[in-house]
């Protein structure tokens, strides 16, 4: 059997691990959500643009993406927005923790 102090520190350690896991889950979930939302907004903007969906959808990505190919452009935008989502979420969590 462990002593009271050992139990106390072990429980605190496990609590920290659980909180970390919970934060990681939140970050992943929010990042995915922000990526989906970003893609949806781009899609909506392209669809609502006066020049029509067919012309504007690839060009929206074409103009913003690093790649010359529209599909690769789409992939890079999704990746970049995912990274952006991760950064923003981590920042929000850090601010929340500091506030607490």
């Amino acid at each position: 059997m462990r002593s009271l102090d050992e139990k106390f520190y072990e429980i605190k350690k496990r609590e920290a691990r659980l909180r970390y896991k919970k934060n990681i889950k939140t970050v992943g979930l929010l990042s995915c959500l922000s990526t989906v939302m970003f893609v949806f907004i781009v899609y909506l903007a392209a669809k609502l643009s006066p020049s029509g969906f067919k012309n504007s959808f690839p060009s929206v990505f074409y103009g913003a993406a690093i790649s010359q190919h529209p599909v690769l452009g789409l992939v890079s935008i999704i990746l970049l927005s995912f990274l952006l989502g991760v950064c923003v979420t981590i920042l929000c969590l850090k601010l929340k923790n500091e506030k607490n």
Partner: peptide, 18 residues
């Protein structure tokens, strides 16, 4: 099993306080 029981006890406390 006493060892498993102690581990699970600490997990339970950790879950509760987290």
């Amino acid at each position: 099993n006493m060892h498993d029981a102690e581990e699970l006890m600490m997990d339970s406390f950790a879950i509760l306080i987290s």
